[in-house]
């Protein structure tokens, strides 16, 4: 049994998928380098990213399955789960065989987990469109740190490039040590590890206080329901918020 090992990029993944389809042995595995453990049975094959192969897969998916599929395959790839690579490959094979509407077969043993992962990634992306908090730095750049469960920076960046078009910003995924950079015209993703503490703009602290004040004042004390709040904002995200989540301020209770 062969394992196609690629370089952790989406293009690499598509190239590996291309090889997988080409060889027609569907017992084989596709696996990203960072997750490959190796054992006695498997025969690892290194796949080198090939733009042409990747482009052919994209073309095939778009023509036969449509944009929604490509979007989902990408989302599943970004989940970085151990089973993600094979889920995408198997779902794609089913799609090519039975047509794109196979996605409606929700109880299928491959489609069901495929949809589940894709939906989870999209859900987290949507939450982060709201949960990202920028701070203005001394240099005028807006900086945000976050640590999403899935590697969703590439899905967040286009939204903020569109929305915050007139400001330079950085969204830092501190868990993965990468960041999206935007210079008021284009964005790109690169590694980022901060060595020095950040210097904030003069008015930054005052604005944060304004926001905290607003957050406290808008709470209706007769309706306090911390459990509901935690359900909406999972605890793992709390420390990246400007406002205090999960606590009742004295002013709120009065």
């Amino acid at each position: 049994m062969k394992v196609y090992i690629y370089d952790d990029t989406f293009k690499g993944y598509l190239t590996a998928i291309f090889k997988w389809f080409e060889n027609k042995d569907f017992e084989d595995d596709v696996c990203r380098a960072s997750l490959y453990g190796g054992n006695l049975i498997n025969r690892p094959i290194d796949v080198f990213t090939d733009e042409a192969c990747a482009a052919r897969v994209v073309k095939g998916v778009l023509e036969k399955l449509g944009y929604e599929w490509l979007d989902m395959i990408h989302a599943v790839f970004l989940s970085e789960l151990p089973e993600a690579d094979m889920l995408g490959a198997r779902a794609m094979r089913l799609g090519f065989k039975y047509g794109k509407s196979i996605l409606n077969d929700e109880r299928h043993e491959v489609i069901q987990p495929f949809l589940k992962v894709a939906r989870a990634v999209k859900r987290e992306t949507h939450s982060f469109l709201g949960f990202v908090r920028f701070s203005k730095l001394d240099s005028g750049i807006y900086y945000a740190s976050c640590h999403p469960t899935y590697n969703i920076l590439v899905l967040l960046a286009p939204h903020f490039a569109d929305r915050m078009g007139d400001q330079s910003w950085v969204i830092h995924d501190t868990g993965r040590g990468i960041a999206a950079f935007y210079n008021q015209s284009d964005w790109h993703i690169n590694t980022l590890n901060l060595s020095e503490p950040l210097l904030y703009a003069e008015d930054e602290m005052a604005l944060r206080n304004n926001w905290r004040g607003y957050f406290e004042a808008v709470t209706i004390s007769e309706r306090v329901n911390l459990k509901l709040q935690q359900q909406k904002i999972p605890k793992k995200y709390w420390k990246y918020f400007t406002e205090d989540i999960g606590v009742l301020n004295q002013n709120t209770i009065e």
Binding site: H126, G130, F215, T219, S221, N225, L226, L228, T252
Partner: peptide, 15 residues
């Protein structure tokens, strides 16, 4: 779809 930016201690969304 709208985007929620935060949730207050009463569980309501701030958008």
């Amino acid at each position: 779809s709208g985007i929620c930016h935060s949730f207050t201690p009463d569980g309501r969304c701030i958008s």
